[in-house]
Computed example of a mutant assay.
Amino acid sequence: MNNFRYPLEEVPLVWIVIIAVLLLIQGTWIFQDARRRGRFPWLWGLWGITGFPTPLIVYWFVVIRSNRRLR
């Protein structure tokens, strides 16, 4: 039924906390930057807390790089 290599009970609590903090920091930074640029902050912020680092990489290509080309 559970095909994970390690069950959740075996993952140290420290790693779970580190991952949670990392996702919250990433989501908060993306949200604040998107709000400053006026580019759908809630969408980017919510997507930013779902995974690492894909939302950050996509945000960089879609929002930040496109703003640099317009200047």
Rank of each mutant, 00 (worst) to 15 (best):
P12Q: 05
N67I: 03
L13G: 03
F52R: 05
I49T: 11
Y6A: 08
M1T: 14
Y59F: 12
T28A: 10
P55F: 07
P55N: 12
T28C: 01
M1K: 13
I18L: 12
W42R: 09
E9T: 06
I25R: 03
V11N: 06
V21I: 08
I16F: 06
L46Y: 07
G48S: 13
L22E: 05
R37W: 13
V17Q: 13
V63A: 07
L56W: 09
L70K: 10
L46D: 02
S66G: 03
S66Q: 13
N67A: 12
I25N: 08
I19R: 14
F4H: 10
W15E: 04
E9V: 10
V58G: 00
F40W: 15
I30M: 15
E9I: 09
P41G: 15
W42T: 13
P55K: 11
D33Q: 15
V17R: 10
L24F: 13
Q26A: 01
I64A: 09
L22P: 01
L24D: 00
E10N: 15
P12T: 06
T28L: 09
V14K: 14
F4T: 03
I57F: 09
R35H: 07
V17F: 14
G48M: 09
W42G: 00
R5P: 00
R65K: 12
R68I: 06
L56E: 00
I18Y: 11
W15N: 09
R69C: 00
W44Y: 14
G38T: 05
R39Q: 14
L43P: 06
V14G: 01
V62W: 07
L43Q: 03
R71F: 12
P12A: 15
D33T: 14
L24C: 10
W44A: 00
W15A: 10
R36K: 13
L43M: 10
R35G: 12
G27W: 05
V62R: 06
W42C: 01
Y59K: 10
L43I: 11
N67S: 08
P7D: 15
T28D: 01
G45P: 00
F61K: 05
I16V: 13
I18E: 11
M1W: 05
P12G: 07
R71V: 11
I25L: 12
V58S: 00
R71C: 03
L70P: 00
L13R: 08
G38A: 15
Y59L: 01
L70S: 09
G45S: 00
R65P: 00
I25H: 02
I16W: 12
L43E: 04
L70G: 11
W60K: 05
R5E: 11
V11F: 05
A20S: 11
F4W: 04
P53S: 05
V14D: 01
F52L: 12
L22W: 05
R35K: 12
L70N: 15
T28S: 14
V58W: 03
W60A: 14
G27F: 05
F61T: 04
T50G: 07
E10V: 05
M1N: 10
V58F: 15
V14Q: 06
I19F: 05
G27C: 15
P55Y: 03
T54Y: 06
I16K: 14
R65C: 13
I30Q: 04
L22H: 03
W44D: 04
V62I: 13
